[in-house]
């Protein structure tokens, strides 16, 4: 707090932040307010009829088992992505951080997937695993005799989505973990080595705790990614199928609003999502700023 600098000029600073505030207002606050407003109405798409229904759009969601199913799947999905993407990228970062030949090459290659857009990532995995056209699906079926049909098998569909979404997130995590590992002082590790600590002990007692701010930051980012940014992957690969088992919350918002034109319910769902993002953000600021520091 004490580091804050106070501007003496009364107008200039406000003028300087005005463009940014205008953008935030027009593209964030105003639509968000619209969503809150619409969530209290039942309306026809053309805006001809607006019937005020109070909290009915919300209460309908809360008693709808399909909504809770979607909530559960989204949560499990986000957790699975977070765990697998973080564990694998930490492992890769540790390997790439060793003094090995071609390490610069490995690092570059491991960062590359970050340049792929999420939708394209989904399409790549679709082309590999689609039971009708996929190359790997063909090998699975004809060489390994796996009954690969994720269009009807939830477990297969969920596994495929998790793999695709985690793969996309690996590069991001990798960069942060690598940077984190490089900032662990070599002297600490050497001292531990001299004291007779093995590789496992060095990792769990020194490196991992030293990495914890990075890990915590990534945990929040990965959860947010798993919850809110995996829409293109679901859209490309399963479209919520089989049945509606992989229809995660963000996918459902889009489907109900844009395709099915149920604007009231879609608005209510997006307000609920907005509250979730706010909670996650508050959580992140509280803990990152206070707990996980040295």
């Amino acid at each position: 707090m004490s580091k804050q600098y106070e501007f003496k000029a009364p107008v200039l600073p406000y003028l300087l932040v005005l463009p940014q505030m205008a953008i935030v207002f027009v593209f964030f606050f105003w639509p968000a307010a619209q969503a809150v407003l619409q969530s209290f109405y039942l309306q026809d798409p053309f805006g001809g009829r607006m019937i005020f229904v109070g909290f009915q759009n919300y209460s309908k969601l809360l008693v709808d088992p399909d909504y809770w199913q979607s909530f559960t799947v989204s949560t499990v999905f986000a957790l699975c992505i977070t765990i697998s993407a973080m564990a694998i990228s930490l492992f890769l970062a540790i390997q790439a951080n060793k003094k090995i030949r071609f390490s610069a090459f490995y690092k570059t290659m491991l960062v590359w997937p970050y340049a792929v857009s999420t939708l394209v990532a989904g399409v790549i995995w679709l082309f590999m695993f689609n039971p009708n056209v996929g190359v790997i699906a063909y090998v699975l079926k004809h060489t390994f005799h796996v009954n690969w049909q994720y269009l009807l098998n939830f477990n297969q569909a969920f596994l495929l989505l998790t793999m695709a979404a985690s793969w996309k997130q690996l590069a991001y995590n990798f960069v942060f973990f690598l940077a984190g590992l490089q900032s662990v002082p070599a002297t600490l590790i050497e001292a531990a080595e001299i004291d007779g600590a093995g590789a496992g002990t060095r990792f769990w007692k020194i490196i991992f705790p030293m990495l914890s701010p990075t890990t915590f930051y990534l945990l929040v980012m990965n959860l947010v990614y798993g919850f809110f940014e995996t829409f293109p992957i679901v859209h490309a690969i399963t479209q919520g199928a089989p049945g509606k088992s992989t229809g995660i919350l963000v996918y459902k918002v889009w489907r109900d609003g844009v395709i099915n034109l149920d604007l009231g319910s879609s608005a209510a769902q997006s307000v609920i999502l907005m509250l979730m993002v706010i909670l996650l953000t508050v959580f992140q600021f509280r803990f990152i700023e206070r707990r996980v520091t040295y």
């Binding site: 269009l151 009807l152 098998n153 939830f154 919520g240 199928a241 089989p242 049945g243 509606k244 489907r255 395709i259 099915n260 034109l261 149920d262």
Partner: peptide
């Protein structure tokens, strides 16, 4: 009305039948 939703219900339930 809501024809898209009806078709979606049919698609989803047909998949549940096949599964």
């Amino acid at each position: 009305g809501n024809f898209n939703i009806i078709r979606e219900i049919e698609d989803q339930t047909w998949e549940d039948i096949l599964a």
